[in-house]
Design a binder for these strands. Structure first.
Length: 868
RNA sequence: GCCCCCUUGGCGAAAUUGGUAUACGCAGCAGACUUAAAAUCUGUAGGUCGAAUAGACCGUGCCGGUUCAAGUCCGGCAGGGGGCACCA
């Protein structure tokens, strides 16, 4: 039968309508715990206005899992929402003279329409945006609960300040020390801001990483390093000089075993002593100011030049009769430890560089056994598990590992009452205040008499005012008197609203809980939350490996304490997908060209690119992350229009493993599209052939049997691969099976009833197997096979173990580790029998030339190696 | 600076986690069909030597090690990439 080409556009719209009509993907709001549940969630998008290819990849993966689990009999929750607060809306508002709210909701409408074109099996009934007052009012309630529970507090904190725009700048808005918009030199300012006490959970958040066994090892490691537990000691170094108000400098050290090598003290420019000295020493004050001008990020500080300033003061060594000079170092962070360290140049490269630069002593605390040489320009830093020889050690340690010596030193100081053992964490409290308009208002009123007063719960939500001036420098909420100026709820005197809004990471730290019952009158419905959570499979970009995921883990704990859920961890399974990247193209004048302006040809002489409009040769550049500036983006809607959603879905699942970057190529998409058409032809050809009753004519030999067997084997593998999110391998399996079925369709006579039945059965299973990946095509094929029910509503087929199992297999025979031939064996043939048969083989006999083999290794079902 | 990851044909990759390296796809080449093109189908394909679809040797970034056996494990090196607290 001459079948027509598959028309994706018509079919996709049709089936999307059918699914919606049947409410196939809506999950009842009433909890029904009779079925096993499965919660699959992709990180919700920021509504930038258009979906990009990364979204297509992310949501396709989640959709494959959602559809697969549904077919496997799970009650699936697969919701979608919008991470809708944030800076881009304010930037767009200023650039295009729009309102952040209107801009955001228009973007949401546009992106929802685009996402719907993809045919995702989402429960749109649960959709919400974080900028909906019906969402953020609950976030405000949570804030107040956290405040009550002592989990939120205020303190001073340093920010990047743009003096012209009168605004706080994100690190990425600081370019070469100047504001990105104003170009003015950025200042560091201390503002009183709101914080969440995530540091209270450092130990627990760290320890619980061990239970996250369905998280990528990489992410677990990043979180461990981020929390950064270190064991050390705090030792007071008594000042040898008189400074009023200061008797000693507390130094934190993880390496007290090197104390004998200490030759100076370095304090942070923000250390209280350092600040105290500023008033009497202008040069010192200028040095500190200089240090504060460099960025706040760790990378900048650590990679930058190490600068020091000699205060002229000195301290007494805590266990030896000598003094150490006190320096201010730009590399000492006030936020970490005590803001003061002792420098041991011999055993720390940074301290050594510092000492050489400023002419400070270099003294060994230990040396390696048998090597007495002095340290020159390379610090001696052996692994802490290696034994080293300590010199003149106060605690009597001589030869020991550093680990042991550290413990003994800490014990010695504690016993003498001259220091205390501490476990420190790198994790700092989470600053949530943002001096911006487009965010969730912090529900607090400041009163001169009563201090910070929570907005009464009955007054929630504190809604964002719409009528704000976005073009005036500073936070628009500060310039809105009727919103800002309110009476104190406690004493009734005039007060002021908190005009800071919350970090957008707060919005995304609990949205996954809200999805369990998006209409709940409280932040969560306990029954629904405890039933659906944790998220069984969470999927998103690696860029969220630390902050979003850690904040969500903190939030879950804080919400448990405040009675909003009963949950240990929010995400049981996590998958971090790679990016979609594309080749770049440059015109003769060096300007970037979009892929749609370029045609690429390939031949034996290599790849060449030309401009489509005038034929001029174009330089092919590197394969890079899609970005507007390099113009190497591909618009998903174009692809959906041209090829259809199934082609796009199939392509992003093919070839590259999902956690690695995938290269978008036009040829690859066309290849996927060809496969769609091939499947369609094959299904129609099989549908048109005569077939016997499948049960009555089940073959046990011949092509039909091979086809059935391979189908069941493929099913077993695809099942496993989808479960393990190895979509590229599942795709390869389906390709192989399709090749086999096509050949069988050609080879089998049209009146072969048994063969026809086997082919039919196989095709039906094949359709079900690719349904999660290409659901529209699958529906169309299912219908072509004469089925009335939708394939999306069918149960996943089960592989017949008898058909999956092979009776005989071919295994390689090696001589001295090199393959020299094969041997066909029964799948359960005993070892001795295999060995005996191998030794009979001609090429084995020849290699042995009459001698007995030295060794014969038989690995059942795998390999035989004869060592001669 | 610190921490982490990656490296397999022309390209994306696979390899049951120590057991036949290159499955599957893309691009290529040769052929069939066609007046022609498109579409479709068939064949071919790591490298070197070789007439060979005979056979041999080499081969998973580089150097070395462990093992009967290494893409996989260990040590060292090189190249590429990512993260480092107000982008989301």
């Amino acid at each position: 039968m001459a079948s027509e080409r598959y028309n994706a556009r018509v079919a996709e719209a049709h089936w999307q309508g059918k699914w919606e009509q049947a409410a196939l993907f809506e999950t009842p709001l009433k909890v029904d715990s009779s079925k096993p549940k499965y919660y699959v969630l992709e990180m919700f998008p920021y509504p930038s206005g258009r979906i990009h290819i990364g979204h297509v990849r992310n949501y396709t993966m989640g959709d494959v899992i959602a559809r697969y689990k549904r077919a496997k009999g799970f009650q699936v929750l697969h919701p979608m929402g919008w991470d809708a607060f944030g800076m881009p809306a304010e930037n767009a508002a200023m650039q295009n003279n729009t309102h952040p709210k209107g801009w955001t909701y228009e973007n949401i409408d546009a992106m929802r329409r685009q996402l719907k074109l993809m045919g995702l099996s989402l429960d749109w009934k649960r959709e919400f945006a974080t900028c909906d007052a019906t969402y953020y009012e609950h976030q405000q309630k949570l804030f107040l609960d956290f405040l009550n529970a002592g989990l939120a507090y205020r303190k001073e904190s340093r920010v990047n300040w743009d003096p012209v725009d009168q605004t706080v700048l994100a690190n990425e808005q600081v370019i070469d020390g100047c504001g990105w918009r104003s170009g003015a030199p950025v200042e560091q300012r201390d503002l009183v801001q709101w914080f969440f006490k995530i540091s209270d959970f450092s130990e627990e958040l760290l320890d619980a990483i061990g239970d996250l066994d369905r998280w990528p090892e990489k992410v677990r490691l990043m979180q461990k390093n981020w929390i950064g537990r270190s064991r050390g000691i705090e030792i007071p170094f008594e000042l040898a000089d008189d400074v009023s108000g200061f008797e000693a400098i507390d130094c934190y050290s993880t390496r007290p075993d090197t104390l004998h090598g200490a030759s100076f003290i370095a304090i942070s420019p923000d250390h209280p002593l350092s600040i105290a000295l500023e008033s009497e020493n202008n040069i010192l004050a200028e040095f500190n100011a200089q240090c504060r001008r460099t960025g706040t990020s760790e990378a900048v500080i650590e990679a930058g030049e190490k600068l020091g300033f000699n205060t002229g003061l000195s301290v007494k060594h805590p266990s030896e009769d000598r003094t150490l000079p006190v320096w201010i170092g730009n590399f000492v962070l006030m936020d970490y430890g005590t803001g003061a360290v002792f420098g041991c140049p011999a055993h720390d490269q940074r301290d050594l560089d510092f000492a050489r630069k400023y002419g400070l002593d270099v003294r060994n605390a230990f040396h390696m056994p048998g090597e007495m040489g002095d340290v020159e320009n390379e610090a001696l830093v052996p692994p802490k598990t290696d034994k080293v020889i300590y010199q003149e050690h106060f605690a009597g340690v001589t030869e020991a590992t550093s680990n042991d010596a550290i413990e003994e030193t800490i014990a010695w100081f504690e016993q003498k009452g001259r220091g205390r053992s501490v476990t420190r964490y790198r994790l700092r409290d989470w600053g949530v205040s943002r001096q911006r308009y487009w965010g969730c208002p912090i529900p607090i009123i400041h009163c001169e008499d009563c201090g910070t007063v929570p907005v009464p719960e009955t007054d929630l939500p504190v809604t964002l005012p719409d009528d704000v001036m976005l073009d005036t420098p500073g936070n628009p909420l500060d310039h809105h008197p009727t919103w800002r100026d309110v009476d104190c709820p406690k004493c009734g005197k005039p007060g002021r609203r908190e005009t800071d809004t919350m970090d957008t990471f707060v919005d995304s730290s609990w949205y996954f809980l809200r999805f369990s019952q998006p209409d709940a009158e409280a932040p969560t419905d306990l029954e629904a939350a405890n039933y659906w959570l944790p998220v069984d499979q969470y999927i998103g970009g690696i860029e969220h490996a630390i902050l979003h995921l850690l904040y969500s883990r903190f939030y879950t704990r804080a919400m448990k304490i405040t009675g909003h859920c009963d949950l240990k961890e929010p995400f049981a399974g996590l998958f971090t997908q790679g990016m979609v990247v594309h080749e770049t193209y440059r015109d003769a004048d060096g300007s970037w060209l979009s892929p749609i302006e370029v045609s690429v040809t390939e031949s034996e002489s290599g790849r060449k690119a030309h401009r489509i409009d005038n034929g001029a040769e174009v330089t092919i550049g590197g394969i890079e992350k899609m970005s507007k500036s390099k113009r190497n983006t591909v618009d998903p809607e174009d692809i959906l229009e041209t090829f259809g959603a199934d082609t796009a879905r199939w392509f992003v699942l093919s070839d590259s493993p999902p956690d690695r970057d995938v290269i978008w190529t036009e040829a690859g998409v066309e290849g996927s599209h060809r496969f769609v058409q091939r499947l369609w032809r094959l299904v129609n050809d099989v549908a048109a052939r005569k077939a016997g009753d499948a049960a009555a004519t089940a073959p046990n030999e011949g092509i039909a049997f091979v086809v059935l067997r391979q189908t069941h084997q493929t099913l077993a593998r695809v099942d496993e691969m989808i479960s393990e999110l190895r979509f590229n391998s599942a795709v390869a399996q389906l390709h192989t099976l399709t090749n086999t079925l096509e050949q069988a369709q050609r080879k089998l006579n049209t009146d072969d009833m048994a063969g026809g039945a086997a082919l039919r059965t196989s095709i039906m299973m094949l359709i079900q197997m690719f349904t999660p990946m290409m659901p529209h095509l699958a529906e169309e094929c299912w219908k072509a096979m004469g089925e009335n029910q939708m394939v999306s509503a069918t149960a996943w087929p089960e592989a017949d173990p008898e058909l999956v199992r092979e009776e005989s297999i071919s295994i390689p025979v090696q001589i001295n580790g090199k393959k020299r031939g094969d041997l066909t064996i029964a799948v359960d043939e005993p070892k001795d029998a295999i060995e005996a048969r191998v030794l009979e083989l001609d090429f084995v006999q020849a290699a042995l030339s009459g001698k007995a083999p030295k060794r014969v290794i038989v690995v059942p079902k795998r390999i035989v190696n004869v060592v001669v």
